[in-house]
Design a protein around this nucleic acid. Sequence first.
DNA 1: AAGGTTAGAATACGACTGTATCTCAAAGAT
DNA 2: ATCTTTGAGATACAGTCGTATTCTAACCTT
Lengths: 198, 198
Amino acid sequence: MPKSVDREAQRRQIGAALLQLVAERGLDEVSVRTVAAATGRSPGAVQKYFRTKDEMLTFAAELAGERIERRMAEVNTALPLRQALRDLIRTTLPVDAERRAEATAQLAFAVHAAHHPRLAAIRRQVDQDIRQALATWLESAGHETHAAALADAVIALSDGLALRMLYTPQEHEHLLTVLDRALDTLIPDPGTDRHLRE
Amino acid sequence: MPKSVDREAQRRQIGAALLQLVAERGLDEVSVRTVAAATGRSPGAVQKYFRTKDEMLTFAAELAGERIERRMAEVNTALPLRQALRDLIRTTLPVDAERRAEATAQLAFAVHAAHHPRLAAIRRQVDQDIRQALATWLESAGHETHAAALADAVIALSDGLALRMLYTPQEHEHLLTVLDRALDTLIPDPGTDRHLRE
DNA sequence: AAGGTTAGAATACGACTGTATCTCAAAGAT
DNA sequence: ATCTTTGAGATACAGTCGTATTCTAACCTT
């Protein structure tokens, strides 16, 4: 048989390069040629792994989704709920170069999904997974009622902050304190009786 | 002198067509030619009003920003704070065709701004205006402390919900209840003493 | 009425797009 | 050692992009 290559590994490498390209130069700078150049390949070589640009794009979107879910699984659930939640959200915000790359790609895909049914389906699946993980986590931490709604609110808050950070790097610190304060309000401190505060 | 035409009116008409095009087909379907066709013009006619595509894009972004600010000014501030706030945010969410068009354009521009300094500056200006209006409003309604941070949290929540609604039309109603519940928590009901609840 | 000015259309240009096709070299199987 | 399969590269093609240029027709001013 022929030259044996780990096809899946190659696809992931190309997908990762695409995500980085989206983060650095924006989704509309992504073309078969620019992605190929970013991986040191010829355009024809990329075509061997993705027959169409669209297939390449959806693959990258799934890859980005997997990364987020993996990050969620890595959060230390032994910490107090509010702090763990804070850590979790911070790993999705564009606070440094790596996170910024992922957040940028995520948001670009989300907007693109508005006019791209297959991309929308992928996003919905990822959202569903995140929401459910968050909701069951909240429930086990004592927020039995409306855990799902609370999870959705937290996700929306996080996405909204990430969106804004994309084009206002000056406000990063300020927006992080906004997050803290909002979490303080949304998630009552279990260690303090509510009616004793203030 | 020549054929007299209201240049500014023409520019606004073209800008409006661009926004609608973004909403219906996405930002990367926007070209000088498609915008021209959408206004019943030839590409050359559009060039008379915008020398470059970029100039056309930034103009449309400013136009979209003006629309949001106008909507904010139209909210009935005589209503109870929480309800007025709810109404305000609902007018920015993609609940019907018209609002969906504006929200889609806004979010597309926001993501694009991550790689487009001039667009980012426009977005920052609009954000600043909205935030300040919201903050002074909150202050006058009794939220003297941390009004600015609360305003930012509300904006982020709203943007995050809008983003998600773009690709999950099925969840519109659910996300609206999420909004209501989050607002209930973030904005304590002024008619009820806090320590008397639950 | 003549002339200057501009809106609008048509056209042209080079660059880039996605995709299909072709060639070549390399590697495993017989 | 030969053959076959395949990764990778090169090239080709039709289409679209943004922008510059050219032309015509309509209007206002003098």
